[in-house]
Amino acid sequence: MTIGKLSVNLKALSCLLFFYNTIETVLLLRILFMDLIDTLGFVAAICTTISFIPQAIKVLKTGETKALSVTMYSLFTFGVALWLAYGWIKNDAAMIFANTITLVLAIAILYQIVRNLRSDKSER
């Protein structure tokens, strides 16, 4: 009788070890893919942030904003601020990094747009 119980226990133990190794493998794969996912997020954040820089430089150098919509930049700036808040809540470094830089640039452009609109109105 003990031998029968021992063989059942060995089967149960081997099943547990199999599942433990499977879970361990799954966790390892999740960690590896999480690093890949984080890297993907940072690359995306860098690309979108860098793409915004030329517009900001042009506006800040020339002061020219007639072709830019104040409504669009207001909504865009608000949206970026919300993405930044979301990134903080989720503790997502890529979102925080990209949206902090983009928010600063968007505020600078929005400031210049509003400034130009006010000066245009005062000249009339």
Score class of each variant (00 low, 15 high):
residue 101 I to R: 00
residue 118 R to F: 07
residue 119 S to Q: 06
residue 44 A to D: 04
residue 41 G to L: 02
residue 36 L to I: 15
residue 82 L to F: 10
residue 51 S to K: 10
residue 88 W to R: 04
residue 20 Y to L: 15
residue 113 I to K: 03
residue 92 D to I: 05
residue 82 L to I: 15
residue 41 G to A: 05
residue 77 T to P: 08
residue 25 T to A: 08
residue 63 G to T: 05
residue 100 T to W: 01
residue 76 F to N: 14
residue 99 N to M: 14
residue 43 V to I: 12
residue 14 S to F: 11
residue 54 P to Q: 00
residue 59 V to I: 09
residue 31 I to T: 15
residue 62 T to G: 04
residue 63 G to E: 04
residue 66 K to E: 04
residue 17 L to S: 02
residue 105 L to V: 02
residue 69 S to M: 08
residue 72 M to A: 03
residue 66 K to S: 11
residue 15 C to R: 09
residue 102 T to P: 14
residue 67 A to E: 13
residue 103 L to C: 13
residue 60 L to S: 06
residue 83 W to T: 15
residue 120 D to L: 01
residue 8 V to K: 15
residue 99 N to E: 09
residue 111 Y to G: 13
residue 51 S to V: 08
residue 41 G to I: 07
residue 106 A to N: 08
residue 43 V to K: 02
residue 25 T to C: 06
residue 7 S to Q: 09
residue 12 A to R: 07
residue 20 Y to R: 02
residue 88 W to N: 09
residue 36 L to E: 12
residue 48 T to I: 11
residue 1 M to H: 08
residue 62 T to W: 00
residue 91 N to D: 13
residue 85 A to M: 09
residue 77 T to D: 01
residue 94 A to G: 10
residue 5 K to R: 12
residue 72 M to D: 10
residue 25 T to M: 11
residue 14 S to E: 07
residue 95 M to G: 15
residue 7 S to R: 04
residue 118 R to L: 08
residue 70 V to W: 04
residue 38 D to Q: 11
residue 113 I to L: 05
residue 111 Y to E: 01
residue 102 T to N: 15
residue 12 A to I: 12
residue 2 T to S: 09
residue 34 M to N: 07
residue 56 A to R: 01
residue 110 L to T: 01
residue 43 V to A: 05
residue 35 D to E: 15
residue 110 L to I: 02
residue 35 D to Q: 14
residue 122 S to I: 03
residue 37 I to F: 07
residue 46 I to E: 02
residue 65 T to W: 00
residue 30 R to D: 10
residue 81 A to G: 15
residue 73 Y to R: 11
residue 87 G to D: 06
residue 113 I to V: 13
residue 79 G to L: 06
residue 103 L to H: 06
residue 4 G to W: 04
residue 8 V to Q: 13
residue 15 C to N: 11
residue 41 G to M: 03
residue 109 I to F: 02
residue 105 L to H: 00
residue 109 I to S: 00
residue 93 A to E: 14
residue 55 Q to S: 06
residue 31 I to K: 15
residue 69 S to E: 00
residue 64 E to K: 09
residue 95 M to A: 08
residue 54 P to T: 12
residue 48 T to W: 05
residue 98 A to N: 03
residue 123 E to T: 12
residue 69 S to T: 06
residue 110 L to W: 00
residue 84 L to G: 08
residue 82 L to C: 13
residue 12 A to G: 08
residue 97 F to P: 14
residue 2 T to Q: 14
residue 26 V to D: 02
residue 94 A to D: 00
residue 48 T to H: 07
residue 36 L to T: 11
residue 116 N to D: 01
residue 15 C to Y: 09
residue 9 N to R: 07
residue 23 I to D: 03
residue 89 I to K: 09
residue 3 I to D: 11
residue 116 N to P: 02
residue 102 T to F: 05
residue 29 L to H: 07
residue 80 V to L: 03
residue 75 L to E: 08
residue 71 T to F: 12
residue 72 M to P: 10
residue 31 I to M: 10
residue 3 I to K: 12
residue 54 P to H: 03
residue 41 G to W: 03
residue 74 S to C: 09
residue 39 T to W: 01
residue 37 I to R: 06
residue 104 V to R: 06
residue 68 L to V: 07
residue 77 T to R: 05
residue 55 Q to K: 10
residue 115 R to A: 11
residue 9 N to A: 09
residue 45 A to Q: 03
residue 12 A to N: 13
residue 25 T to E: 11
residue 42 F to V: 08
residue 66 K to P: 03
residue 106 A to I: 04
residue 112 Q to S: 01
residue 69 S to P: 05
